[in-house]
Simulated scan of single mutants.
Amino acid sequence: MWKLWPYSGRPTEPERSPAATYFESVPEMVKYMVEDVAGTGRNITMDRYFTSVPLTEDLLADRLTIVGTCNKRRQLLPKELTEASGREVDSSIFCFRNDVTLVSQCTKPGRLVLAVSTQHRAPLVDSRTKKPEIGPLTDQGPLTD
Results as ranks from 00 to 15, higher is better:
107 T>W: 00
47 D>L: 04
108 K>C: 05
61 A>N: 10
40 T>S: 15
7 Y>F: 14
99 D>S: 11
34 V>S: 01
21 T>A: 10
12 T>V: 08
46 M>D: 05
110 G>V: 02
135 G>H: 09
68 G>W: 00
70 C>T: 06
58 D>S: 12
12 T>S: 12
5 W>T: 09
37 V>R: 13
86 G>V: 06
34 V>A: 06
52 S>A: 03
91 S>G: 07
53 V>K: 11
29 M>D: 12
29 M>P: 07
66 I>A: 01
105 Q>W: 15
73 R>L: 01
43 N>M: 11
20 A>D: 15
106 C>T: 03
140 Q>F: 12
54 P>T: 06
31 K>I: 07
16 R>H: 11
5 W>D: 11
42 R>L: 11
97 R>C: 10
62 D>M: 06
58 D>V: 03
5 W>Q: 14
91 S>P: 04
68 G>T: 01
9 G>N: 07
121 R>D: 05
20 A>L: 08
144 T>I: 08
35 E>M: 13
114 L>M: 02
29 M>T: 13
128 R>I: 04
144 T>N: 09
64 L>W: 02
8 S>E: 12
22 Y>N: 08
59 L>A: 03
76 L>T: 10
22 Y>D: 06
85 S>R: 15
103 V>E: 00
43 N>G: 05
118 T>W: 06
55 L>V: 07
137 L>R: 03
52 S>R: 00
118 T>N: 09
92 S>D: 07
72 K>R: 15
132 P>W: 06
61 A>I: 03
7 Y>V: 03
1 M>Y: 10
4 L>H: 10
42 R>P: 00
130 K>E: 03
46 M>N: 08
75 Q>A: 04
28 E>T: 14
83 E>G: 13
107 T>F: 02
87 R>C: 05
18 P>K: 14
108 K>A: 10
28 E>G: 15
34 V>T: 14
138 T>G: 09
45 T>V: 13
87 R>S: 05
99 D>Y: 09
38 A>K: 14
45 T>W: 06
23 F>S: 08
102 L>A: 02
108 K>D: 11
16 R>Y: 08
111 R>I: 12
24 E>K: 15
29 M>Y: 09
93 I>A: 00
54 P>Q: 09
42 R>G: 06
37 V>G: 06
49 Y>M: 04
90 D>S: 09
66 I>G: 02
